[in-house]
């Protein structure tokens, strides 16, 4: 028997005697849990509000702004036509609440919030109706 054969014989014996390593008792369960998690579809974000009202709303705003710019070149000096209507509402509100002074900025902001809430309430109502009925 040459050196090589001696070595092979020795290592063969060693490796046959070498014991296997045992993983934890819940190894299979852990792997299966990970696989179940892998198979579960991840939650997909779906907005409550459909896209079309947002698109319509933004389009109206853009059109109004474009119209305002097109009809009044000196935008900074003049006010767009729709502000007159808002002014009227403001005047009416001022008359009603003469002691409360509402600035234009605040009025615009309140109007915008009102429109958004109005839209969302309507859509949420439809959403919950469809889910609960």
């Amino acid at each position: 028997m040459n050196d090589n054969e001696h070595l092979e014989k020795l290592v063969n014996e060693l490796m046959e005697d070498a014991s296997y390593e045992k993983p934890s008792h819940n190894f299979t369960d852990t792997v299966m849990k990970k696989i179940e998690a892998l198979d579960k579809p991840s939650p997909i974000f779906k907005s409550v509000m459909p896209k079309w009202p947002i698109v319509v709303f933004v389009s109206i705003l853009v059109l109004l702004a474009a119209y305002g710019v097109a009809t009044n070149p000196s935008v900074e000096e003049t006010t767009p036509f729709y502000t007159q209507e808002i002014d009227k509402v403001g005047q009416w509100l001022s008359y009603l609440f003469s002691k409360i002074v509402i600035s234009k900025k605040a009025l615009y902001t309140l109007s915008m919030i009102g429109i958004v809430i109005g839209l969302q309430t309507h859509i949420l109502k439809k959403y919950f109706n469809s889910r609960l009925t």
């Binding site: 296997y20 390593e21 045992k22 993983p23 190894f27 299979t28 792997v31 299966m32 696989i35």
Partner: peptide
């Protein structure tokens, strides 16, 4: 999609893979 079969595979090879 039979997960029980995969559990069998894990049981069969876990000691060797872990070693």
């Amino acid at each position: 999609g039979d997960s029980q079969e995969f559990a069998k595979l894990v049981d069969k090879y876990k000691v060797l893979v872990f070693t």
